[in-house]
């Protein structure tokens, strides 16, 4: 009695709901990972990467991430289709949709705050 494969909807619903925070997490990974690795190598004298490039990398990733989140806020239904998200009950659908948007807003704040720090600080200095 093998039931039909309905893990599409729940996995899709989770991804759809969490798309904002997921982009936030990806952003943190992509700015922190390369920045700390490149700085570690710079300090150890293993690479000559220009610090300015690291700053640009952080800024670039931030801009892309923010654009991505805004896209999901702007066209949530497109995103829903990508993840094959649907809910039978109306209240459920609108609940998940608006939750997804609010989470996107919070993620946007998080990404913007993290990205903006690169405008002030030297990317590799310990500053102590």
């Amino acid at each position: 009695m093998k039931a039909g494969n309905d893990n599409g909807p729940i996995a899709g619903a989770i991804l759809f709901l969490l798309i904002g925070p997921i982009i936030w997490a990806a952003h943190l990974l992509l700015v922190y990972g390369p920045q700390s690795a490149l700085c570690a190598f710079r300090i150890a004298g293993r690479t000559q990467v220009d610090p300015w490039l690291i700053s640009m990398l952080v800024a670039g990733v931030t801009v892309i991430a923010m654009a991505a989140v805004m896209l999901t806020l702007w066209r949530p239904r497109r995103v829903a289709r990508i993840f094959r998200f649907d809910a039978a009950a109306n209240d459920n659908r609108s609940f998940i949709l608006s939750s997804m948007r609010w989470l996107g807003v919070l993620a946007l704040i998080g990404i913007a705050l993290a990205g903006a720090t690169t405008l002030i600080l030297d990317p590799c200095a310990q500053l102590r």
Partner: peptide
């Protein structure tokens, strides 16, 4: 909080940047 914390963060990062 979003507004005030942004200002605080900016101030904190600014103080951090004066280090070294």
């Amino acid at each position: 909080p979003a507004v005030t914390l942004t200002f605080l963060l900016a101030y904190g990062i600014f103080v951090l940047g004066m280090g070294g």
